[in-house]
Write a protein that binds this DNA or RNA. Structure first.
Lengths: 224, 224
DNA sequence: GCTAATTATATTGTCGACAATATTGTCGAC
DNA sequence: GTCGACAATATTGTCGACAATATAATTAGC
């Protein structure tokens, strides 16, 4: 039986607003008007505030007492920090994974990525970003540490926008695909040093590119 | 001029409830009654819910649709995960710090800890835990990465309770003090490898001890 | 007596109203 | 015209009431 359980207003507001915050449909520093959002999503302020509170705790929005909620800034410094932590956490993940050596999970990741590659040409940019995020999350999950996965999901939400801009460049889509293949193969092979090296290179490159496309991102945000 | 700016109900509720959640004044899995909390803190449900929402996003509470907010569980698995990530993040911090080599900040940490040691005998357990957390946070701050600091603060909140239990043992208070001294000296000396080694040892020991005292912690929670 | 369906109660989810505060607009002094 | 004080407006913060849902108590059937 299909379990419909329609979600609450607060829940759907959270999802909608989270998506908007992630993708900078709000402009950096912009003040969000609760009444307006309530009208837009056809509900009262209470569930809206609930969602806004959660999002500000996640850092996707900023809250200031008696002033309300604002869109977060998009700054070099922040992107750099996120990428740095991401590197620490993902390297930790594969080290841990290689030690534990759960081949099953790894094979699934390889299969998953092979399937993505097969349909890569027909994927929209958003879809590819989603699969990219998923690939890295699967690596993290293989390390069997809930906290690590949660943190990386958090980081993904914050980097989603710049990643999206970055993967609009065809060359980098290609690069992502091949590098992922290399990484997963080295992990499966149990070559800790090689795997680390390739992952590090992949993530540092990705960080550089994120910073590089940041101006494009800002332009995009303010262009419409 | 003293700026008093008395905080809002939501804010004070957040602080109070956060402290209770951190220290397991609620029992693991316990359901929190919003009306009761509102009565206890002398306010309406709105600011209470606001605080509870934030806390559940932080993972200090758990939220289930239409059932409300519950105290988080206290599990071996969770503690282990937290300690593992903490290790990754703190090691990353000192690596980064040693490279950047901001001697000033490091000297301040050394001074801070020297002062803590001086008054160690007269400190309550909670105070020592606070200073312990602060020492590690200062190391993280020296690495100049906001995200890292936020994540470690998050982890601290989750580990606070077991740390408190652990530092009730005199021998371990002593151990903490001397190990911190060693670590900061190696970092200041710029001995990356040594510093890493000592920090790793310190944190892995600390993780083992956290797991070891967990039964004591549970007993404490359920004894009163 | 035990289980399942039904009813009663308690609790969360949402709303609209008002209070507290911040922001904007207006006026007058210079 | 510019600045500051004051008034007008808009926005957030909090409340109490009610609706929707979950939990507990009660009854009916066996």
């Amino acid at each position: 039986m299909a379990r419909h359980k329609r979600s609450s207003h607060a829940e759907s507001a959270y999802k909608a607003l989270r998506e908007m915050a992630k993708t900078f449909e709000f402009k950096p520093g912009e003040r969000l008007n609760e009444l307006e959002l309530a009208a837009r999503l056809k509900m009262s302020r209470s569930p809206i505030r609930e969602a806004l509170n959660r999002l500000s705790t996640e850092g996707l929005l900023v809250w200031r007492p008696n002033q309300g909620f604002f869109c977060r800034q998009l700054r070099v410094r922040e992107i750099r920090s996120l990428c740095e932590i991401r590197l620490d956490l993902e390297l930790g993940a594969i080290r841990s994974t290689i030690k534990a050596a759960d081949k099953g999970a790894l094979k699934k990741i390889k299969k998953f990525w092979r399937e993505v590659v097969a349909k890569a040409a027909s994927l929209t940019n958003e879809e590819l970003v989603g699969y990219d995020e998923e690939f890295h999350l699967m690596l993290a999950r293989a390390a069997d540490n809930e906290v690590r996965v949660r943190f990386l999901e958090h980081i993904n939400a914050h980097l989603n926008f710049v990643r999206r801009i970055n993967l609009e460049i065809e060359e980098r889509r290609q690069q992502t695909i091949t590098e992922h293949n290399t990484i997963i193969d080295e992990i499966i092979g149990g070559h800790a040093t090689k795997a680390e090296e390739y992952l590090r290179k992949h993530l540092m490159m990705s960080a550089d590119q994120a910073l590089e496309v940041l101006p494009t991102g800002l332009l995009r945000i303010y262009s419409d």
